[in-house]
């Protein structure tokens, strides 16, 4: 039967997990709940996304008839900002959100945006305002089991959607850390376990680098790219003593993606909902023809 199968968009799960992470952190990890900041992040992102979509479609539409998946992307980016970016200044929240959304429209090559929106927003805000920061230790390492379970849950429900990037990154990064810390420096194993059991690392690998829209299209290219990010991030954290290197390196390496796409051709990734929409459009088109002919 040619009934369109209702497959949930993976982005719904992503949102759900981000909300769970945030509430867990506030409820049990003594995070100070910055409600004003959260609403500014989310509000700014949604409003700007809506405006951008309206301008591109050259018509004002009510937010309830928002057909494109733009709001999902904006919501996910702003939830990432809520989870990762710290500041004491409300205007920074607006700036970070705006940078995230605009980066999708300003930096585009071949119909793909170059930077992961939230990573770009975070890195640009931290580097250029000097008034925002990341707290890599904010989850500690005792919450890691909770995070791991959620991430595994995410894999299950999304049916391994582009998990290759996550695994390539995580295995390379952890592998290099293991070689350096345990084999070379001879630290006990719990030293290494603490390095990899931070919520920030899991969040990055499952919810940021894994974004299929900003990764190379070709499967092999994706894996090389993820491993490259892991290796460079490892270098700067182990030898240059920098913090939160994966996010910075992700942004730094983003311009390589169009290069990979040029060298290794493959289809551009589309979220399931978007695929469905285009299929539906085709079906409608055919139907209308039929009616016309009939």
């Amino acid at each position: 039967m040619a009934v369109a199968v209702k497959q949930w968009d993976a982005r719904y799960f992503q949102m759900a997990f981000q909300v769970i992470f945030l509430s867990y952190s506030i409820l049990f990890l003594q995070w100070k709940a910055e409600w004003l900041q959260y609403s500014l992040y989310i509000g700014t992102a949604l409003i700007l996304q809506w405006l951008c979509d309206a301008i591109l479609e050259k018509k004002m539409f009510s937010p309830f008839q928002w057909s494109s998946g733009g709001w999902k992307s904006a919501l996910i980016s702003s939830l990432s900002l809520c989870l990762l970016l710290k500041t004491n200044n409300w205007s920074i929240c607006i700036l970070a959100s705006a940078l995230s959304v605009f980066s999708k429209y300003i930096f585009r090559i071949n119909g793909k945006h170059v930077f992961n929106p939230s990573a770009f927003g975070i890195v640009a805000t931290v580097l250029f305002t000097g008034n925002a920061w990341l707290s890599p230790g904010q989850w500690g390492s005792s919450a890691v089991i909770f995070f791991a379970v959620c991430c595994l849950g995410f894999i299950v429900v999304t049916r391994v959607q582009k998990l290759d990037i996550t695994l390539a990154f995580l295995l390379t990064f952890a592998g290099l850390l293991f070689i350096r810390q345990v084999i070379y420096l001879n630290w006990p194993i719990d030293f290494f376990l603490q390095s990899i059991s931070t919520g920030s690392l899991l969040l990055f690998s499952f919810f940021m680098i894994s974004d299929p829209r900003t990764a190379p299209n070709h499967a092999v290219a994706r894996i090389i790219w993820a491993m490259l990010i892991a290796a460079v991030a490892f270098y700067f954290s182990a030898f240059k003593w920098m913090n939160s290197t994966p996010i910075f390196i992700l942004v730094l390496m983003a311009p390589l993606v169009p290069l990979f796409d040029l060298l290794m051709k493959a289809k551009i990734f589309q979220w399931r909902a978007a695929v469905k929409e285009s299929q539906q459009a085709t079906i409608n088109f055919i139907k209308s023809k039929r009616i016309y002919h009939g």
Binding site: Q30, G130, G137, W139
Partner: peptide, 14 residues
């Protein structure tokens, strides 16, 4: 010079 210090590998709690 700029603000608080915090640990990057342990959680900071107020």
């Amino acid at each position: 010079k700029n603000g608080r210090i915090e640990s990057t590998n342990y959680r900071s709690v107020l």
